[in-house]
């Protein structure tokens, strides 16, 4: 295991744990997305590029979009007290 893999693994665990402790849902979704991108890199280092592509596309791309859509639908994207958000996602 090279140094970069150790770093990635540590960061992976940090991301996974910190999702639970982040209060703002949008930030949690973004951290979750970074978890997926790290996982994609790790899949490549495990010599499975097929999984890496799928992880990047599904975990990092589509899941994030669906999560953000959900947050938008339950009005969780808006910061409390401000109502500047009128754009549609």
């Amino acid at each position: 295991m090279t140094l970069i893999e150790v770093l990635l693994l540590v960061f992976l665990v940090a991301c996974a744990v910190s999702v639970f402790f982040i209060k703002r849902l949008l930030n949690a979704v973004i951290v979750f997305m970074s978890y997926s991108s790290i996982m994609a890199v790790l899949w490549i280092s495990l010599e499975s590029p097929d999984l890496a592509i799928t992880e990047a596309a599904v975990g990092c791309g589509v899941t994030t979009m669906l999560f953000i859509l959900t947050l938008k639908k339950i009005n969780a994207l808006r910061e409390e007290g401000t109502d500047q958000d009128e754009s549609t996602i």
Partner: peptide, 14 residues
Amino acid sequence: SPGGGFSGGTILGG
């Protein structure tokens, strides 16, 4: 090459 229907389809959908 690595990839295929599932990953490519997800990229298209994304």
